[in-house]
Design a protein around this nucleic acid. Structure first.
Length: 116
DNA sequence: CAGGTGACCACTT
DNA sequence: TAAGTGGCCACCT
């Protein structure tokens, strides 16, 4: 039977996996919470991905490359400023649509097994 | 102790 | 076609 320690370990591991995927996002590209969650096998737990990024605060993780399904910068406010995330993405050569959303069609990147 | 919220997405009607 | 609802699970009040 699973011990609480293991459950806690899995949670921590979940965050670590999210960070690992985010760290693999190519420069100038973005991904969505759902794709990360699906890659981790938690398609329905996309919300937890957001918490993982929240825990990534202060870490060398490009959480600014993670946007919602519509390319909107959902976590811009939690990033330390509403414009920080957008500015960072613009620095990455990322283009925005007239709606203020990232041009997913051109910058959407999906986590794959990465046939290195 | 229990309820509500949240950096969301997918499916159903 | 669009709009609505459920679900997931951890953290906060």
């Amino acid at each position: 039977m699973p011990s609480e320690d293991e459950a806690t370990k899995e949670r921590d591991d979940f965050y670590t996996r999210v960070w690992a995927v985010v760290a693999r996002i190519p420069l100038g590209n973005v991904t969505t919470y759902g794709h990360i969650a699906a890659y981790l096998g938690a398609r329905r737990s996309a919300r937890m991905v957001g918490w993982a990024l929240n825990a990534a605060s202060g870490m060398p993780i490009p959480c600014h490359r993670v946007v919602n399904r519509y390319g909107g910068l959902s976590g811009s406010h939690h990033f330390g400023g509403p414009f920080i995330m957008e500015d960072l993405l613009r620095s990455e050569e990322v283009e925005f649509d007239d709606d203020g959303c990232v041009r997913m069609k051109s910058h959407l990147w999906i986590p794959e097994e990465e046939t290195d």
